[in-house]
């Protein structure tokens, strides 16, 4: 499904990695490892199509992702370093706008349910700038609950989350994998996750 061929990343004068190949099938979990500055975030951004590889290609269902951007984006969910949450808007507004932008029509209750489920019950209508770091992250994570994207690309998803939220996110990922989804993620925390196939790519090697 997702395939990477001969990927090379150059940032400034440094070649971070080269000749990277891997494949990911439905139900598989891929964890990227590597020290700081080894190109984990760059690789994730390449998988999304945000960053153009210096060499090589990223294929989705056999075709280059940049040749089928809209189709690929419809099946992609990316959670980056920054939350992608507007500070002036409430959690609910953020979610509603995001869903309209993705072309989904969800009723308001579903959005409130998702926010409650992720642990923001009672804070749905506060501007997100009034929330804590962890709560802001949860607003971003609420998208995972409302999304049917096949491929999740998560950059340090556990950062700023408390123990309970970490467990909840791990469960979400497991459920996504069980439904045949794919997850690529990086983390500095060791989080136990059950998956059909757990794979690792180490960028330091």
């Amino acid at each position: 499904m997702l395939e990477v061929r001969g990927l090379e990343c150059v940032r400034g004068d440094h070649r971070l990695f080269t000749g990277l190949n891997f494949q990911l099938q439905g139900g598989e979990l891929l964890r990227l490892r590597g020290s700081n500055g080894s190109g984990k975030t760059s690789l994730l951004r390449m998988l999304c199509g945000l960053l153009e590889p210096a060499e090589g290609e990223v294929l989705w269902k056999g075709a280059d992702i940049r040749a089928q951007r809209d189709e690929f984006n419809a099946e992609l969910l990316y959670l980056g370093h920054s939350n992608g949450v507007k500070a002036e808007l409430t959690g609910f507004e953020n979610l509603r706008i995001n869903n309209a932008l993705c072309g989904r029509s969800l009723v308001d209750e579903q959005l409130y349910d998702a926010l409650a489920e992720i642990g923001l019950g009672g804070r749905e209508d506060l501007p997100t700038q009034a929330l804590s770091q962890g709560q802001k992250r949860r607003v971003a994570l609420a998208r995972l609950l409302l999304n049917d994207a096949a491929l999740w690309i998560l950059d340090e998803p556990f950062t700023a989350l408390d123990v309970k939220a970490v467990a909840q996110l791990a469960k979400l990922i497991e459920a996504h994998l069980q439904k045949g989804g794919m997850v690529v993620y990086t983390t500095h925390q060791e989080v136990e996750m059950r998956a059909g196939a757990c794979r690792e790519v180490n960028l330091d090697e």
Partner: peptide, 15 residues
């Protein structure tokens, strides 16, 4: 661009 919503905008399934 600062808060990451631009990134998300680039990844929407819309032109």
């Amino acid at each position: 661009y600062q808060d990451g919503t631009l990134e998300q905008m680039l990844l929407l399934p819309q032109p």
